[in-house]
Nucleic acid binder design. Structure first.
Length: 197
DNA sequence: CGCCCGATGTGCT
DNA sequence: GCACATCGGGCGT
Protein backbone atom coordinates (compact mmCIF):
# COMPACT_ATOMS: atom_id res chain seq x y z
CA UNK A 1 0.00 0.00 0.00
CA UNK A 2 1.37 3.33 -1.04
CA UNK A 3 -0.67 6.20 0.24
CA UNK A 4 -0.65 9.58 -1.47
CA UNK A 5 1.99 11.92 0.00
CA UNK A 6 1.33 15.15 1.88
CA UNK A 7 2.54 17.14 -1.16
CA UNK A 8 -0.45 15.88 -3.14
CA UNK A 9 -2.87 17.33 -0.60
CA UNK A 10 -0.99 20.62 -0.38
CA UNK A 11 -2.22 21.54 -3.85
CA UNK A 12 -5.11 23.88 -4.60
CA UNK A 13 -8.36 22.34 -3.31
CA UNK A 14 -10.26 22.42 -6.62
CA UNK A 15 -7.39 20.63 -8.32
CA UNK A 16 -7.25 18.04 -5.55
CA UNK A 17 -10.99 17.39 -5.88
CA UNK A 18 -10.52 16.76 -9.62
CA UNK A 19 -7.41 14.63 -9.10
CA UNK A 20 -9.04 12.42 -6.45
CA UNK A 21 -11.43 10.96 -9.02
CA UNK A 22 -10.23 7.48 -9.96
CA UNK A 23 -8.13 7.10 -6.81
CA UNK A 24 -8.84 4.43 -4.22
CA UNK A 25 -10.14 5.24 -0.74
CA UNK A 26 -8.97 2.53 1.66
CA UNK A 27 -10.17 1.78 5.19
CA UNK A 28 -8.72 -0.93 7.36
CA UNK A 29 -11.36 -2.63 9.50
CA UNK A 30 -9.98 -5.23 11.93
CA UNK A 31 -7.01 -5.89 9.67
CA UNK A 32 -8.97 -6.16 6.45
CA UNK A 33 -9.00 -3.75 3.52
CA UNK A 34 -12.34 -2.21 2.62
CA UNK A 35 -11.96 0.06 -0.38
CA UNK A 36 -13.49 1.73 -3.41
CA UNK A 37 -12.71 4.06 -6.29
CA UNK A 38 -13.66 7.70 -5.71
CA UNK A 39 -16.26 8.70 -8.29
CA UNK A 40 -17.63 11.97 -6.87
CA UNK A 41 -16.02 14.79 -4.86
CA UNK A 42 -16.55 18.47 -4.07
CA UNK A 43 -14.23 21.35 -3.13
CA UNK A 44 -14.87 23.74 -0.23
CA UNK A 45 -12.51 26.67 -0.32
CA UNK A 46 -11.69 29.19 2.43
CA UNK A 47 -13.63 31.59 4.65
CA UNK A 48 -14.75 33.50 1.57
CA UNK A 49 -16.67 30.47 0.24
CA UNK A 50 -20.06 30.85 1.92
CA UNK A 51 -20.79 27.14 1.46
CA UNK A 52 -17.66 26.15 3.39
CA UNK A 53 -17.92 25.47 7.11
CA UNK A 54 -15.01 27.89 7.57
CA UNK A 55 -17.14 30.84 6.40
CA UNK A 56 -17.91 31.62 10.07
CA UNK A 57 -14.21 31.71 10.96
CA UNK A 58 -12.26 29.18 12.94
CA UNK A 59 -14.31 27.25 15.50
CA UNK A 60 -13.89 24.06 17.48
CA UNK A 61 -15.84 22.14 14.86
CA UNK A 62 -13.96 23.26 11.74
CA UNK A 63 -10.49 23.65 13.27
CA UNK A 64 -9.06 20.64 11.45
CA UNK A 65 -9.63 22.38 8.11
CA UNK A 66 -7.20 25.09 9.20
CA UNK A 67 -4.51 22.52 9.93
CA UNK A 68 -2.12 20.46 7.87
CA UNK A 69 -3.05 19.00 4.50
CA UNK A 70 -3.67 15.28 4.23
CA UNK A 71 -5.79 14.98 7.37
CA UNK A 72 -9.37 13.78 7.61
CA UNK A 73 -12.01 16.35 8.50
CA UNK A 74 -14.95 14.27 9.72
CA UNK A 75 -18.05 16.03 10.99
CA UNK A 76 -21.53 15.14 12.18
CA UNK A 77 -24.69 16.64 10.71
CA UNK A 78 -28.48 16.28 10.52
CA UNK A 79 -28.43 14.56 13.88
CA UNK A 80 -27.34 11.24 12.42
CA UNK A 81 -24.81 11.47 9.58
CA UNK A 82 -21.01 11.56 9.39
CA UNK A 83 -19.20 13.16 6.44
CA UNK A 84 -15.64 12.57 5.28
CA UNK A 85 -13.45 15.35 3.89
CA UNK A 86 -9.73 15.59 3.20
CA UNK A 87 -7.88 18.77 4.17
CA UNK A 88 -5.91 20.48 1.39
CA UNK A 89 -3.68 23.47 0.70
CA UNK A 90 -1.30 25.37 2.94
CA UNK A 91 -1.64 25.24 6.72
CA UNK A 92 -3.78 28.12 7.96
CA UNK A 93 -5.96 28.25 4.84
CA UNK A 94 -9.18 26.30 5.48
CA UNK A 95 -10.05 24.09 2.52
CA UNK A 96 -11.20 20.51 2.09
CA UNK A 97 -12.62 18.03 -0.38
CA UNK A 98 -15.86 16.23 0.50
CA UNK A 99 -15.83 12.63 -0.70
CA UNK A 100 -19.37 12.09 -1.98
CA UNK A 101 -19.33 8.65 -3.61
CA UNK A 102 -17.12 5.62 -4.21
CA UNK A 103 -17.48 2.44 -6.26
CA UNK A 104 -16.71 -0.48 -3.90
CA UNK A 105 -13.86 -2.74 -5.03
CA UNK A 106 -12.57 -4.57 -1.93
CA UNK A 107 -14.17 -5.86 1.26
CA UNK A 108 -17.54 -6.14 -0.41
CA UNK A 109 -18.82 -8.54 2.25
CA UNK A 110 -18.01 -6.05 4.98
CA UNK A 111 -19.77 -3.28 3.08
CA UNK A 112 -22.75 -5.50 2.39
CA UNK A 113 -23.06 -6.30 6.07
CA UNK A 114 -22.81 -2.67 7.10
CA UNK A 115 -25.38 -1.63 4.47
CA UNK A 116 -27.72 -4.58 4.98
CA UNK A 117 -31.13 -4.39 3.40
CA UNK A 118 -30.33 -1.67 0.90
CA UNK A 119 -29.84 -1.95 -2.86
CA UNK A 120 -26.23 -2.30 -4.00
CA UNK A 121 -26.38 0.98 -5.93
CA UNK A 122 -26.96 2.83 -2.65
CA UNK A 123 -24.18 1.23 -0.63
CA UNK A 124 -21.63 4.02 -1.13
CA UNK A 125 -23.37 6.68 -3.24
CA UNK A 126 -23.61 9.61 -0.86
CA UNK A 127 -21.24 11.11 1.71
CA UNK A 128 -23.04 9.68 4.75
CA UNK A 129 -23.42 6.29 3.05
CA UNK A 130 -19.65 6.04 2.55
CA UNK A 131 -19.07 6.70 6.23
CA UNK A 132 -21.65 4.08 7.20
CA UNK A 133 -20.18 1.52 4.79
CA UNK A 134 -16.55 2.10 5.82
CA UNK A 135 -17.17 2.63 9.55
CA UNK A 136 -15.96 6.23 9.50
CA UNK A 137 -16.96 8.52 12.37
CA UNK A 138 -15.70 11.35 14.55
CA UNK A 139 -12.96 9.24 16.06
CA UNK A 140 -11.11 9.70 12.74
CA UNK A 141 -11.41 13.50 12.75
CA UNK A 142 -7.94 15.01 12.38
CA UNK A 143 -6.24 11.71 11.60
CA UNK A 144 -3.44 11.69 9.03
CA UNK A 145 -4.09 9.94 5.72
CA UNK A 146 -0.40 10.03 4.83
CA UNK A 147 1.41 7.62 7.12
CA UNK A 148 1.55 3.86 7.46
CA UNK A 149 0.00 3.90 10.93
CA UNK A 150 -3.28 5.07 9.50
CA UNK A 151 -6.43 3.01 9.20
CA UNK A 152 -7.67 5.35 6.49
CA UNK A 153 -5.82 6.59 3.40
CA UNK A 154 -6.05 7.16 -0.35
CA UNK A 155 -3.85 5.49 -2.96
CA UNK A 156 -3.36 5.77 -6.70
CA UNK A 157 -5.48 3.52 -8.88
CA UNK A 158 -6.39 4.24 -12.50
CA UNK A 159 -6.18 7.72 -14.02
CA UNK A 160 -9.36 9.35 -15.26
CA UNK A 161 -9.34 11.39 -18.48
CA UNK A 162 -10.96 14.81 -18.63
CA UNK A 163 -13.58 13.64 -21.11
CA UNK A 164 -14.86 11.13 -18.53
CA UNK A 165 -15.54 13.85 -15.98
CA UNK A 166 -18.66 15.92 -15.40
CA UNK A 167 -18.75 19.10 -13.33
CA UNK A 168 -21.71 20.75 -11.64
CA UNK A 169 -22.62 23.04 -8.77
CA UNK A 170 -22.19 21.49 -5.34
CA UNK A 171 -25.10 19.51 -3.90
CA UNK A 172 -27.34 20.64 -1.08
CA UNK A 173 -26.47 24.35 -0.88
CA UNK A 174 -30.07 25.56 -0.64
CA UNK A 175 -29.56 28.96 0.99
CA UNK A 176 -25.99 29.67 -0.07
CA UNK A 177 -25.68 32.98 -1.99
CA UNK A 178 -24.07 33.42 -5.40
CA UNK A 179 -21.51 33.10 -6.74
CA UNK A 180 -20.75 30.23 -4.36
CA UNK A 181 -23.93 28.33 -5.05
CA UNK A 182 -23.07 28.02 -8.74
CA UNK A 183 -19.35 27.33 -8.58
CA UNK A 184 -18.57 24.23 -10.63
CA UNK A 185 -16.66 22.59 -7.82
CA UNK A 186 -18.35 19.19 -7.96
CA UNK A 187 -16.58 16.50 -10.00
CA UNK A 188 -18.14 13.20 -11.04
CA UNK A 189 -16.96 10.30 -13.19
CA UNK A 190 -19.47 9.96 -16.02
CA UNK A 191 -20.63 6.34 -15.94
CA UNK A 192 -21.63 6.43 -19.61
CA UNK A 193 -18.38 7.81 -21.01
CA UNK A 194 -15.79 5.03 -20.97
CA UNK A 195 -13.87 6.07 -24.08
CA UNK A 196 -10.24 7.13 -24.26
CA UNK A 197 -9.20 10.53 -25.61
C1' DC B 1 -37.99 6.86 -10.95
C1' DG B 2 -39.35 11.35 -8.63
C1' DC B 3 -41.02 14.28 -4.87
C1' DC B 4 -42.09 14.98 -0.10
C1' DC B 5 -41.22 14.76 4.59
C1' DG B 6 -39.69 13.31 9.13
C1' DA B 7 -35.73 11.86 11.82
C1' DT B 8 -32.59 13.58 15.28
C1' DG B 9 -28.00 15.98 17.50
C1' DT B 10 -25.12 19.84 17.59
C1' DG B 11 -22.82 24.20 16.59
C1' DC B 12 -23.38 28.84 16.39
C1' DT B 13 -26.20 33.47 16.56
C1' DG C 1 -33.96 28.75 18.45
C1' DC C 2 -32.80 27.37 14.07
C1' DA C 3 -30.23 25.82 10.23
C1' DC C 4 -27.82 21.99 8.62
C1' DA C 5 -22.24 19.92 2.56
C1' DT C 6 -28.39 13.95 4.23
C1' DC C 7 -30.91 9.66 4.12
C1' DG C 8 -34.63 6.45 3.70
C1' DG C 9 -39.50 5.34 3.59
C1' DG C 10 -43.90 6.21 1.50
C1' DC C 11 -46.62 7.02 -2.15
C1' DG C 12 -47.71 8.75 -6.92
C1' DT C 13 -46.37 8.37 -11.97
Amino acid sequence: MTCLPESFYQQEVVLVARQLLGMRLVRKISGKRVAGIIVEAEAYRGEEDLACHAHVGKTHRNAVMYGKAGRAYVYFTYGMHWMLNVVTGPEGFPAAVLIRAIRPTEGIEEIQTRRAGRPEKEWCSGPARICKALDIDGSLNGSALIDDESSLWIEEASPVFDNQILTSPRIGLGNTPEPWKSKLWRFVIDRKEMKRP
